[in-house]
Nucleic acid binder design. Structure first.
Lengths: 130, 130
DNA sequence: CAACGATATGATGAATTTATTCATTCATAA
DNA sequence: TTATGAATGAATAAATTCATCATATCGTTG
């Protein structure tokens, strides 16, 4: 029932669950705003993202349940911040990874086009497959 | 339609998509094996995980589509390895984060138990005149 | 070539997640 | 108190993902 009671479960399940918490564009967007600006009000998130209030709120609830963010009330407004700095690290590394992936797949595309007729491929790591 | 054609989409969508690729226990497990042992055959993954062949294969396909692993055929067997070292980094940081989260929530639980009696709960009835 | 072992793919219903609508709570102001 | 703005929460249909079964493909061996 409760997938958020992380204790006493195989680590790979808990880890997969963490990634589930990150696996939505809205939530990534929110986390990125929080990573760069820290301490942001729901109102600001709303205008930043252009989402419907309840939709955003639902995703904020997911982030809270996953212990990725912390909410704090300050006079009729609610402010969010990242619960742990590693969340920002995760986002940073995933960006690095994506840059590498995009570069690489772009290269592959290019070479595929280049040898559209014949010769031996010159991939980034192809060590003389002759 | 094709969520794997990463080009020309907002980065937060691509990033969320990456996390989706990581968001399953079987896939995390496979990636962790590859992170520690690199270059592992499907047969080994099968015996390691005890999964049904087609089930594992399906998850391997997901990992391939997300460009997280690379498959290489060597004489009737297929070997997998991580496509990028950052994938291992991602796993490592997520473990760190989870350790922190678990520590923290455990502490919170403890203190909650400690003051389980004294706190005055808010209620609709006004019988709480001390 | 045919048969076999090793992987991969397709198709299906079950389970989960998402987007939306409506209703509710909380805090301040009148 | 009632009204109002800010944010959350429930309920539900649509979309997605998962697990399982059956079938297909790729290499090797006979």
């Amino acid at each position: 029932m409760d997938q958020f009671t992380n204790a006493h479960r195989p680590l790979y399940e808990v880890k997969a669950n963490l990634f589930k918490g990150l696996a939505h564009p809205v939530r990534v967007r929110v986390l990125e705003v929080l990573a760069s600006a820290d301490h942001v009000s729901v109102a600001d998130l709303l205008s930043d993202t252009g989402l419907e209030a309840s939709h955003l709120s639902q995703h904020l609830a997911v982030l809270r349940r996953h212990n990725l963010v912390v909410a704090e009330r300050r006079a009729s407004q609610v402010f969010y911040r990242l619960a742990y700095p590693q969340v920002a690290d995760l986002l940073a590394i995933s960006r690095q990874l994506l840059v590498d992936i995009l570069q690489n797949t772009q290269q592959q595309l290019d070479s595929t086009i280049n040898l559209a007729d014949a010769v031996a491929p010159r991939g980034p790591d192809s060590t003389s497959t002759s």
